[in-house]
Write a protein that binds this DNA or RNA. Structure first.
Length: 431
RNA sequence: GUGGAUGUAGCUUAGCUGGUUAAAGCGCCAGUUUGUGGCACUGGAGACCGUGGGUUCGAAUCCCACCUUCCACCCCA
């Protein structure tokens, strides 16, 4: 029979890998906690309109990358392509704006985009994201960037470049778009086809076109930063000053535009050279207009999202060391039926005390059991056979040093083994 | 969505001017050692050679389609 395989662009996270996931997730949760963010979990699927309105009708994500289908009730459903929309929806739906500002939330969630898969680009991928509502102050921008920066530091990720830009408010952006349009129209003949079509729709996108000719034309294009209104300009200056004040290095990159419509003012990316064509591991910015757009009252907000698969790719490329998973503390090898049953009981009571213990579960010979104990990295082994059951004495072997220690196997009133202690001192060594 | 490459045991690979039972290392299981792992030795299981068609007396090997993965574009995390 033919095996059914995982869908294109999806992957299984096997036990041998999940330790790494848990390790980075633990750091993320810890840092989020320290920075005052509480976890929010929103559904994996939402009303399709939610993403059309928030991410933007004209964006690539909405136009060609969403997993959209009709459910049995005739509703148009979409699997979340990103985490901000659902968070904003929940923020409004549950009146979280009544809580003391700022409202700060984080999430770890799978996201779905119908893309052609390649390394670091999957159809199901995972994001760690944070959203912050209610602060218009530049220190919020700087603080959020500092949070991401600190997270990478805590994860021992190196060689990341932080790029920042300001795309202004809708007012300055409109003026800038006009200027860009005028400039690129002059050089229309040198632009690639897609860029010519972008001219009318979204001239800012021409700026990050990878086509060498377009890139060359873009070099001489007007600078968004020169078109910022005084307020936006001041905001950007203060964001930079905030980063400077905590010693975070950044590069101003006017080509960062971001593909989601909701961004305003500050936008930023953390990029890595260890990701191939997918250089962005973390991206975010301010989205002051989104909450209002979604039916709330005007609320300044900002956030970022980090791709966990990409993060793990970088960490692997950089050979970042992960903590060793906890090894088995005691493996009880048994000889004979009676001993096997007793080993099972001792292991059970150790596990009740949250001690990682194991015994034979597949009927191996003693020799094979010892080999197995070695393979699972058991720290100590105890051999249990008729002799030990009768005498109440045994030997515990330290698997690292080979050292053997004589122990007493104490029985309780019902004649069951209750504890293991060394002969010399009467101290319990295991439990 | 466009272009280019790729696909042989769980993993890494050999075999590919078409020719009998597809090979190795690692890993897995067992034994050497019915009472003590790591080393060594011996044996075993495990592959519809990505899938489906075609050419041929004969296909892992040649041709076509599809799928997967990878690379670039596009886009983004």
């Amino acid at each position: 029979m033919e095996l059914i395989k995982a869908q294109r662009g999806t992957q299984d996270i096997l036990p041998s890998q999940s330790d790494r996931w848990q390790a980075v997730e633990d750091v993320m949760r810890g840092e989020a906690e320290v920075n005052g963010f509480g976890e929010i979990r929103t559904p994996v699927f939402e009303d399709t309109h939610l993403f059309q309105r928030s991410v933007g009708e004209t964006t690539d994500v909405v136009q060609k990358e969403m997993y959209t289908f009709e459910d049995k009730g005739g509703r148009s459903i979409t699997l979340k392509p990103e985490g901000t929309a659902g968070t904003v929806r929940a923020y409004l739906e549950h009146g979280l704006y009544n809580e003391p500002m700022p409202v700060k939330m984080y999430y770890i969630t799978p996201c779905y985009r119908y893309e052609k898969a390649q390394a670091g680009r999957l159809r199901e991928f995972h994001q760690f994201g944070v959203e912050m509502f209610g602060s218009a102050l530049p220190i919020a921008d700087a603080g959020l960037i500092a949070f991401a920066h600190g997270l990478f530091e805590r994860l021992c990720v190196k060689n990341l470049k932080l790029k920042i830009n300001s795309i202004g408010c809708p007012d300055c952006r409109a003026k800038y778009a006009d200027a860009l349009k005028a400039y690129f129209t002059e050089h229309k003949d040198k632009l690639c086809e897609t860029c010519v079509s972008r001219l009318e729709r979204n001239p800012m996108r021409i700026l990050d076109c990878k086509n060498p000719e377009c890139a060359e034309v873009a070099q001489g294009a007007p600078h968004i930063l020169d078109y910022l209104c005084p307020d936006c300009k001041d905001h950007f200056e203060q964001v930079k000053a905030g980063l400077d004040s905590v010693g975070i290095k950044y590069e101003i990159d006017p080509t960062i535009v971001r593909g989601l419509d909701y961004y305003t003012r500050t936008v930023f990316e953390f990029v890595s050279g260890d990701l191939g064509a997918q250089s962005t591991v973390c991206g975010g910015g301010r989205y002051d207009g989104l909450v209002e757009e979604m039916g709330g009252k005007p609320t300044p907000a900002l956030g970022f999202a980090l791709g966990i698969e990409r993060l793990l790719m970088i960490m692997e490329a950089q050979k970042v060391e992960f903590p060793e998973p906890e090894a088995c503390e005691l493996y009880i090898a048994s000889v004979g039926d009676a001993a096997q049953k007793e080993a099972f009981r001792i292991v059970h009571s150790m596990r009740e005390c949250s001690i990682k213990a194991a015994c034979d579960e597949v009927g191996r010979s003693l020799n094979a059991q010892m080999k197995y104990a070695g393979k699972i990295n058991a720290q100590f082994t105890l051999v249990l056979g008729d002799d030990e059951l009768e005498s109440g004495r045994g030997v515990i072997k330290n698997m690292k040093t080979g050292e053997k220690t004589k122990v007493n196997l104490k029985t309780d009133l019902e004649g069951q083994f209750a504890s293991i202690s060394t002969e010399a001192e009467d101290n319990d060594i295991m439990f």
